[in-house]
Design a protein around this nucleic acid. Sequence first.
DNA 1: TTCGAAATATGAAGGCAGAC
DNA 2: GTCTGCCTTCATATTTCGAA
Length: 717
Amino acid sequence: MTHLFLNTDLALEDNTDNKYIYSVRRTGKASTLLSLSYFEPQTVQRVYNELFLLLINPALDECFRNPKTGRLKEHFVFIVDNGPSEAPSSPLVRMWLARIARVLKLKSVTQKSFAEYHSKRNPVERVHAVHNRALSNEVFSSKGIHKHFEIGDEYHLENMEHMAKEVEQCLATTQYGGKSCVVQRGLGKQDNFVFDDELQLVTFLGKNECQKNLDDNLYKPIQNDLWKEITMLWDLDENMTGSYRNDYQILQNAFHEEADPGEIHYLPLEKMEKLDTDVVDETPGAFLPSKILELVIKVFRHGLDQVLSSLCVLCWCSEEEIKRFEDEFRNKLDTSFTKEKERAYWSQDDLYKKNDKAKLQSLCKKNGISSDGIKHECVKRLVKKLNRNPPPVLEKYDGKLFSLPNYVTEIAKFSVYKLREILRFHNILDCGTKDELAIRVGTLRAGRTHLVFQNEIHAIQDIINATKTLIRRQKEHHLTDPVVIHRIRKFLTPTTASLNMIRPRDSASASAKQNGKRLEVPEEVTLETLDEVFRPIEDELLVYIGVDSVENAPEIVAGLLDAIRTVGVRILARWSKEEIGDSGWKTGWYVGSVLKHNKERDTIEVEFDTEANVIYTYKVDEDVKANKIRLAQSTKRSIQDYEEVCQVGVVVEVMLEEDELEDTDWTSGWYTAEVQAVDYDDGEVDLFFLDKLDFVYNIPVLPNLITGKLRLKEKLF
DNA sequence: TTCGAAATATGAAGGCAGAC
DNA sequence: GTCTGCCTTCATATTTCGAA
């Protein structure tokens, strides 16, 4: 574990033209504590105990001692990464901080963490580079004392201690920021700790508030050499005792306003302080791009295309980045869904039920097959190898909402896979924990689809408002105080996008991993046009809230018209006020399935998820043009390859199931095939299989694309 | 309903490479 | 010497499921 006693060089470089440019160089004294990772796990308790070790190191004296008073400095600030053992929001960490403040008689102790994805910006990381260089030039022996040892035994420990000494010597020669690095062996065994009462502390935190108030347990430092030296050196109370309850009460009174780890702002501190940012501060997740993107993906379940432009401004990512994020997000969901489906299927087998993974792995090895992967994959291979009967096909969800239980508690008893299957059927995003999924299905069952992501909708509205407010304030503020303050890094690398003064947030986001992408800021965002920038996203939000305000933008994609005529396809239909009357339904888009297509009249019969057994008829051509019905986005994605597939020579993959393979010796699964002939009139193609040259198969394209049984393998061009 | 084991997901640490 | 980004490994957190 490495600590960096931070020292910031700030130098005014330029102050012409009402512009203040400071150069910033973050450096400091590096101090490393070596631990044997196998024997000494990095716990919260260890981290704070090792602080005492640093306190008595003469080399670090100048870091801790206030030169004016000659005593211990009274304000401690820790800047940490966002790990579980460090997160300032963790109650355990906060209790330790309260204790440190009490023991060392500090006036304040602050712990700040970097937001997710930003820990690499922690200056302490730069020390690693120095260490790496030193370590890579030397070879360390893990068998320095004993040639033979078992992991975890005495010999192993002695070997590791020996190696730690070698590493210590090696690192002691390094320099960081012109100062030599301090290296020392960590505390080692728990016997050396000053406080080893983590168990009691955790027990205390596990109690409810009432019982915490009644708790009278005390903690005491262990009177070892370390503690004696600290008390002597820094003039502390050798026989101090602390009380869990008191520490906890300090937290309740003084810390509760800092519960949220801070966000990253790109306004300079001097300006930030003058800005009234309450609106922003109170909006959780504002300005962390990935958070915003997750919200919008949940809400705009028919795709983000309509809102891309305003979304760019909202989360400060380019359109490509947003699209890539969306794709990745959905792909992740898709793969995890298929994985869960596989697991649900194979877990029906006795092999899965009666064995744990280790047993299955040894079984696999016995039978001479690979034992890699997760549990159900082993079962799958074993069943095949042992010629067992595969488990029965999973029961499919039939789309009948009313057959689901009425209560969420009942619904929550379904497996995650089942819940996700239901949500997928109804075109609702199936991300999140099981509880969230169950509530979503419950809302669906109650016929309140528009309420499914209600919280997320409000969150987005809040973020939009906060953004507007911030921009407005910033502009107003600029009018009264036009001084521009910039900070530049002393060692700035201008070639890569970074925190620089022109585009401060270019790489400050999870999705901004690709270089060279630039976000075009709308030409003139003025106070007057501010509302316009966010108009598209606000309008689209209204669609999901259920208020109709989008009058135009009928969406006609020629190739998709055919798809709407396909039985089984999922579509959206808009119910306007007139059609609904006072039936109690809200206006808005409703999801349904096509049951029938009448060729002569070109009409389709649709059954809606919210109203079972009632059939509505739509005229395809007319109603699509009038923007009354449209294809569900999920289907749109799967049939975007339609035209590609209808070309001779294209390589595709087909899912063949048991019943289609009755007269053959093939097993069900994906097969690669080439398109041989295309029948444009009936929308069918002839496939020949690359594995079996004598087999030609004729299938209709659209239905198979929609059900996911057919997919493009390689593009022709 | 609670608890614990097993399985899986997550993300921090460690390592490496490369740019200037 | 400073800074960034990517990959692998490992520890920990979360989730699920079955038993009591």
